[in-house]
Protein backbone atom coordinates (compact mmCIF):
# COMPACT_ATOMS: atom_id res chain seq x y z
CA UNK A 1 0.00 0.00 0.00
CA UNK A 2 2.98 2.32 0.49
CA UNK A 3 3.22 3.11 -3.24
CA UNK A 4 -0.22 4.74 -3.17
CA UNK A 5 -0.70 8.33 -2.17
CA UNK A 6 -2.82 8.59 0.96
CA UNK A 7 -6.29 9.39 -0.52
CA UNK A 8 -5.89 6.64 -3.11
CA UNK A 9 -4.83 4.15 -0.48
CA UNK A 10 -7.92 5.02 1.51
CA UNK A 11 -10.22 4.52 -1.48
CA UNK A 12 -8.66 1.14 -2.27
CA UNK A 13 -9.02 0.13 1.36
CA UNK A 14 -12.72 1.09 1.46
CA UNK A 15 -13.49 -0.71 -1.81
CA UNK A 16 -11.87 -3.85 -0.48
CA UNK A 17 -14.51 -4.00 2.23
CA UNK A 18 -17.11 -4.93 -0.41
CA UNK A 19 -17.92 -8.63 -0.75
CA UNK A 20 -15.83 -10.52 -3.29
CA UNK A 21 -13.45 -7.59 -3.89
CA UNK A 22 -9.76 -8.34 -3.45
CA UNK A 23 -6.83 -5.91 -3.58
CA UNK A 24 -6.44 -6.27 -7.37
CA UNK A 25 -10.09 -5.49 -8.19
CA UNK A 26 -10.16 -2.69 -5.62
CA UNK A 27 -7.20 -1.06 -7.32
CA UNK A 28 -8.82 -1.39 -10.76
CA UNK A 29 -12.05 0.19 -9.47
CA UNK A 30 -10.21 3.00 -7.72
CA UNK A 31 -8.35 3.96 -10.89
CA UNK A 32 -11.60 3.82 -12.85
CA UNK A 33 -13.32 6.13 -10.36
CA UNK A 34 -10.44 8.60 -10.57
CA UNK A 35 -10.83 8.74 -14.35
CA UNK A 36 -14.60 9.37 -14.13
CA UNK A 37 -15.94 12.96 -14.58
CA UNK A 38 -16.59 14.64 -11.24
CA UNK A 39 -20.37 14.89 -11.71
CA UNK A 40 -20.53 11.13 -12.40
CA UNK A 41 -18.65 10.43 -9.18
CA UNK A 42 -21.03 12.78 -7.40
CA UNK A 43 -24.05 10.87 -8.75
CA UNK A 44 -22.43 7.64 -7.62
CA UNK A 45 -21.81 8.75 -4.04
CA UNK A 46 -25.28 10.37 -3.87
CA UNK A 47 -26.88 7.09 -4.88
CA UNK A 48 -25.03 5.26 -2.12
CA UNK A 49 -25.97 7.82 0.51
CA UNK A 50 -29.58 8.11 -0.61
CA UNK A 51 -30.08 4.35 -0.60
CA UNK A 52 -28.50 4.08 2.80
CA UNK A 53 -30.67 6.87 4.23
CA UNK A 54 -33.99 5.89 2.68
CA UNK A 55 -33.94 2.11 2.65
CA UNK A 56 -35.08 0.70 5.96
CA UNK A 57 -36.34 -2.64 7.14
CA UNK A 58 -40.12 -3.08 7.05
CA UNK A 59 -41.32 -3.34 10.65
CA UNK A 60 -43.71 -6.12 9.70
CA UNK A 61 -41.81 -8.46 7.38
CA UNK A 62 -38.22 -7.08 7.55
CA UNK A 63 -37.97 -6.69 3.80
CA UNK A 64 -35.72 -3.81 2.71
CA UNK A 65 -37.83 -0.93 1.48
CA UNK A 66 -38.12 2.85 1.40
CA UNK A 67 -41.67 2.49 2.76
CA UNK A 68 -42.48 1.25 6.22
CA UNK A 69 -44.48 -1.03 6.15
CA UNK A 70 -43.18 -2.10 2.76
CA UNK A 71 -45.08 -2.09 -0.56
CA UNK A 72 -45.86 -5.79 -0.25
CA UNK A 73 -47.23 -5.54 3.28
CA UNK A 74 -49.67 -2.74 2.39
CA UNK A 75 -50.81 -4.26 -0.93
CA UNK A 76 -54.48 -5.26 -0.49
CA UNK A 77 -54.36 -7.64 -3.44
CA UNK A 78 -51.95 -9.90 -1.64
CA UNK A 79 -53.06 -12.78 0.54
CA UNK A 80 -51.95 -12.01 4.09
CA UNK A 81 -52.94 -15.44 5.38
CA UNK A 82 -49.89 -16.98 3.71
CA UNK A 83 -46.35 -16.08 4.71
CA UNK A 84 -43.37 -17.13 2.66
CA UNK A 85 -40.22 -17.25 4.77
CA UNK A 86 -36.94 -16.28 3.12
CA UNK A 87 -33.43 -15.71 4.48
CA UNK A 88 -32.62 -12.42 2.75
CA UNK A 89 -34.30 -9.66 0.75
CA UNK A 90 -32.46 -10.89 -2.36
CA UNK A 91 -34.35 -14.20 -2.09
CA UNK A 92 -37.63 -12.27 -1.87
CA UNK A 93 -36.72 -10.39 -5.04
CA UNK A 94 -35.92 -13.68 -6.79
CA UNK A 95 -39.35 -15.06 -5.83
CA UNK A 96 -41.12 -11.85 -6.87
CA UNK A 97 -39.57 -12.16 -10.32
CA UNK A 98 -41.58 -15.35 -10.85
CA UNK A 99 -44.86 -13.34 -10.51
CA UNK A 100 -46.34 -16.61 -9.20
CA UNK A 101 -46.57 -15.83 -5.54
CA UNK A 102 -49.34 -13.61 -4.21
CA UNK A 103 -48.94 -13.97 -0.46
CA UNK A 104 -46.84 -12.02 2.05
CA UNK A 105 -43.25 -12.56 3.20
CA UNK A 106 -41.09 -12.68 6.28
CA UNK A 107 -37.36 -12.04 5.89
CA UNK A 108 -35.31 -13.78 8.60
CA UNK A 109 -32.18 -11.75 7.82
CA UNK A 110 -29.98 -14.84 7.91
CA UNK A 111 -30.03 -18.55 8.69
CA UNK A 112 -29.23 -20.59 11.78
CA UNK A 113 -25.56 -21.49 11.43
CA UNK A 114 -24.18 -23.56 14.31
CA UNK A 115 -20.59 -23.45 13.02
CA UNK A 116 -20.67 -19.64 12.86
CA UNK A 117 -22.45 -19.35 16.19
CA UNK A 118 -25.59 -17.85 14.61
CA UNK A 119 -28.54 -18.88 16.78
CA UNK A 120 -32.32 -18.40 16.39
CA UNK A 121 -32.01 -15.35 18.65
CA UNK A 122 -29.87 -13.61 16.02
CA UNK A 123 -32.66 -13.85 13.44
CA UNK A 124 -36.14 -12.29 13.07
CA UNK A 125 -37.80 -15.41 14.47
CA UNK A 126 -39.29 -13.76 17.56
CA UNK A 127 -41.00 -11.26 15.23
CA UNK A 128 -42.34 -14.08 13.08
CA UNK A 129 -44.04 -15.61 16.11
CA UNK A 130 -45.52 -12.24 16.98
CA UNK A 131 -47.14 -12.24 13.54
CA UNK A 132 -48.38 -15.79 13.98
CA UNK A 133 -49.95 -14.73 17.26
CA UNK A 134 -51.54 -11.49 16.08
CA UNK A 135 -52.46 -12.18 12.45
CA UNK A 136 -54.70 -14.87 10.97
CA UNK A 137 -52.07 -17.02 9.32
CA UNK A 138 -53.15 -20.21 7.55
CA UNK A 139 -49.98 -21.31 5.84
CA UNK A 140 -46.24 -20.88 6.11
CA UNK A 141 -44.07 -21.61 3.08
CA UNK A 142 -40.38 -22.16 3.80
CA UNK A 143 -38.25 -20.93 0.89
CA UNK A 144 -34.78 -21.45 2.34
CA UNK A 145 -31.64 -22.71 0.59
CA UNK A 146 -31.05 -26.48 0.51
CA UNK A 147 -27.86 -26.00 2.54
CA UNK A 148 -27.06 -27.28 6.04
CA UNK A 149 -28.03 -23.86 7.42
CA UNK A 150 -31.25 -23.80 5.40
CA UNK A 151 -32.12 -27.32 6.58
CA UNK A 152 -31.41 -26.48 10.22
CA UNK A 153 -33.55 -23.35 10.06
CA UNK A 154 -36.41 -25.13 8.26
CA UNK A 155 -36.44 -27.96 10.80
CA UNK A 156 -36.28 -25.58 13.74
CA UNK A 157 -39.17 -23.44 12.44
CA UNK A 158 -41.28 -26.48 11.52
CA UNK A 159 -40.80 -27.88 15.02
CA UNK A 160 -42.11 -24.64 16.55
CA UNK A 161 -44.85 -23.73 14.06
CA UNK A 162 -46.54 -27.13 13.54
CA UNK A 163 -47.92 -27.30 17.11
CA UNK A 164 -49.71 -23.98 16.48
CA UNK A 165 -51.93 -25.73 13.94
CA UNK A 166 -50.59 -23.73 10.99
CA UNK A 167 -49.91 -25.56 7.73
CA UNK A 168 -46.17 -25.61 6.98
CA UNK A 169 -44.78 -26.42 3.52
CA UNK A 170 -41.37 -26.20 1.98
CA UNK A 171 -40.53 -25.34 -1.63
CA UNK A 172 -39.51 -28.39 -3.70
CA UNK A 173 -35.90 -29.05 -4.59
CA UNK A 174 -35.01 -30.86 -7.72
CA UNK A 175 -33.83 -30.52 -11.27
CA UNK A 176 -33.30 -27.10 -12.83
CA UNK A 177 -35.33 -26.40 -15.97
CA UNK A 178 -33.50 -27.42 -19.10
CA UNK A 179 -31.33 -29.93 -17.24
CA UNK A 180 -30.59 -33.39 -18.50
CA UNK A 181 -31.70 -36.23 -16.21
CA UNK A 182 -28.73 -38.32 -17.27
CA UNK A 183 -26.23 -35.75 -16.01
CA UNK A 184 -28.01 -34.81 -12.80
CA UNK A 185 -26.08 -35.66 -9.63
CA UNK A 186 -27.49 -38.39 -7.38
CA UNK A 187 -28.28 -36.06 -4.46
CA UNK A 188 -30.41 -33.68 -6.51
CA UNK A 189 -32.08 -36.62 -8.24
CA UNK A 190 -32.90 -38.25 -4.90
CA UNK A 191 -34.45 -35.00 -3.68
CA UNK A 192 -36.43 -34.59 -6.89
CA UNK A 193 -37.75 -38.14 -6.53
CA UNK A 194 -38.67 -37.55 -2.90
CA UNK A 195 -40.53 -34.34 -3.78
CA UNK A 196 -42.47 -35.91 -6.68
CA UNK A 197 -46.18 -35.17 -6.99
CA UNK A 198 -49.19 -36.83 -8.47
CA UNK A 199 -50.18 -35.58 -11.92
Amino acid sequence: MTHYSKPLARLVEELQKLPGIGPKSAQRMAFYILKMPLNEVQKFTDAILEAKEKIKYCRNCFNMSSENPCEICVDDKRNRAIICIVAETKDLIALERTREYKGSYHVLQGLISPLDGITPDDLRIKELFERLKNEDIEEIILALNPSIEGEATSMYLTKLIKPLGVKVSRIAFGLPMGADLEYADELTLARALEGRREV
Binding site: I112, P114, L115, G117, T119, P120, D121, A152, Y156
Partner: peptide, 8 residues
Amino acid sequence: TPAIIELL
Protein backbone atom coordinates in the same frame (compact mmCIF):
# COMPACT_ATOMS: atom_id res chain seq x y z
CA THR B 1 -21.77 -25.58 18.57
CA PRO B 2 -22.29 -26.68 22.23
CA ALA B 3 -24.47 -23.62 22.90
CA ILE B 4 -26.52 -24.37 19.79
CA ILE B 5 -27.03 -27.98 20.84
CA GLU B 6 -28.63 -26.72 24.03
CA LEU B 7 -30.90 -24.37 22.07
CA LEU B 8 -31.99 -26.73 19.32
